[in-house]
Amino acid sequence: MSQKLFFVAPPPKVDPARLFGKLIVIEGLDSSGRTTQVSLLSDWLEQQGFAVIQTGLKRSELVSESLEQAKKGNVLSPRTISLFYATDFYDQLENRIIPSLKAGFVVIADRYIYTLMARDILRGADKEWLKILYSRAIIPDAVFFLNVDCNALLDRTLQSRGRLDYWESGMDIGCAREWYDSFMIYQQNMRMEFRKLHKEYHFNVINGNRTQKTINTELKKKVEQLLEK
């Protein structure tokens, strides 16, 4: 069972028959505890003897720097940002995820195309357009969605950083004049988008309102089952 499936087809020059590793995606809204779970899971897997590599969004060598700069200036149109992120995604897919899977690694992705799609849909992108854009991506072996309610997200954001972030509050869309209101509306809308995506892509939903440890225990159990297959 090493053959990986792609949403429609692999990118040019990629042979799907030689991808032996596993691709595990952790999805969730901002401050839902994803990053903590990714690192706990990686540590645990490595202790079990699995070679692990982590990936995420905006980490490609190719464009992450320019993308960061562009976001600071808030000068790019939503569609340009979409394509910039798609470039970043495929750069990591082809230069990091695929080579790692070939080498038999467990790849843990801190977010995947689902966050990219949800964000872009809220900014007016056409869903079909996005689906074709990302149709060359690998279908993950599992997608865990950390489901946290918005009040808890707000709490965690404020506690860890002491302020709200421009993009996480959807200020670029103009949901509301007040940052607080905008944050709540934006995160609610993101949750709704994820719920729709869940219907289509069948995430493994994890109740993220519990303690880190409880969540981690559940994740480990599920990942264990996956790796035994």
Binding site: K13, L62, S77, T80, A86, T87, D91, R136
Partner: peptide, 25 residues
């Protein structure tokens, strides 16, 4: 990207699409 020769057909295409879209809009 071009200097580093790391582009795949997909990222080559997308990076030009990003550039074009910026100019287009």
């Amino acid at each position: 990207a071009k200097k580093r020769q790391l582009l795949t057909p997909t990222t080559f295409s997308l990076i030009h699409a990003t550039d074009f879209t910026d100019r287009y809009e």
